[in-house]
Nucleic acid binder design. Structure first.
Lengths: 217, 217
DNA sequence: GTCTATAATTTGATAGAC
DNA sequence: GTCTATCAAATTATAGAC
């Protein structure tokens, strides 16, 4: 049944998966426009024709990549935002989750920002992995919960008044932007890989207190 | 000397300028890789051959665009960071300057992040307009001054200790990221142009206090 | 399923008339 | 300086053998 040879060709879904992984690498590195099917084929160590056999066209392949990568950004935040825990703990968890995620795939923010900038029609794909399929539907309950929490804290005099939207955008800005702007930091501050890593670890310690402090009444 | 006709062709440097403006529009919209010379020609209302007459190649044209747009981001910040004014005033000015600049060219952050992500070799061009030509050289004095100020504030017990790098990155994150992530905000929070503008104006009011408060001891 | 060879298309760039 | 027509190169996509 299974053929045995010197260099055995991959069985079952392995080739397709390898192509998809190679495509992720190349699309994130070059962007959808700059990526070449040939480079993806080489990265996957297969022939270019095979890409079309499995994914039909560059367009479809890039969609698959975008869905698998960008679609993983929002579910995490939604889960934490809507959780039944105090605000300060949400801050801690969000900072930690985002910095950890970004550190593992540091080029992801640049890729997503770049793709959405040039292909706004892909925005709906951001929700691929969200239950129900409509992002705003999935976010709304989480935002409402967060908004009530923030209002309650403000009424109790424990926190300055701030809208849920501003709160979230501030937090995401502080966590994600340094990764998106990494090339600029390299140029401006001379951050090589090592310095950048240390810079991020410093942020992991400082950011929760920075954000809590910013919201003190 | 000057020829008069039904539709007079542009004189002197007007055509070249129009091409450059058109190129800015298209390159920012599509990215360097996605931009088409034909689209630029149409946007400038001239023939495609004329682009090459004035700028020789797509590569050179894209460099001119990048220099003129991205090269304007850093000089502003350097000037303010190095100024002889209190920290709190630097915060106010930086927030105001950046939000105003970004509001005028809201796609610039996405474009710059995207370009640097895919063409890191362009990083040096970021400094085009900086005296001396070396960005880190131009930034260093400003950063040193800022670092001393921050240290003095901390010693006097008026501010929490924070490095100049973290201080600046926090500030830039809060100002720039919302523009870079605009498509995401549209999807996640339903921000149309009008809501987004109001959201930014709200930030203009809130951010200086947010940042000052974050740094309270 | 995977390959080689090639078709079809897109696109940056140039030649040459006006 | 500006245009039309065209070339040359790059790149996606397909046909067909194995």
């Amino acid at each position: 049944m299974v053929k045995e040879k010197g260099t055995p060709p991959a069985r079952d879904g392995a080739t397709e998966q390898r192509i998809l992984e190679a495509a992720k690498t190349v699309f994130i590195r070059r962007g959808t426009g700059g990526a070449r099917m040939q480079e993806i084929a080489e990265e996957a160590d297969v022939n270019q024709a095979l890409l079309h056999y499995y994914f039909r066209s560059k367009e479809r392949l890039s969609e698959a990549v975008f869905r698998e990568t960008a679609g993983r950004m929002f579910p995490a935040i939604i889960q934490i935002l809507g959780a039944d825990i105090p605000i300060v703990e949400k801050i801690d968890r969000l900072v930690d989750t985002y910095l950890t995620t970004m550190s593992r795939t540091p080029f992801l923010p640049g890729y997503i920002i770049s793709e959405l900038h040039h292909h706004p029609e892909r925005i709906p794909q951001l929700l691929g992995n969200v239950a129900g399929g409509d992002l705003s539907d999935a976010l709304r309950p989480a935002f409402e919960k967060l908004g009530k929490q923030l209002a309650a804290e403000a009424r109790a005099g424990r926190m300055r008044r701030i809208s849920a939207a501003q709160f979230v955008v501030n937090l995401l800005s502080l966590c994600i932007f340094p990764f998106a702007a990494r090339p600029m930091l390299r140029a401006a501050l001379g951050f090589d890989d090592d310095k950048f890593t240390k810079f991020i670890e410093q942020r992991r310690k400082e950011l929760p207190r920075y954000i809590r402090s910013a919201l003190r009444p």
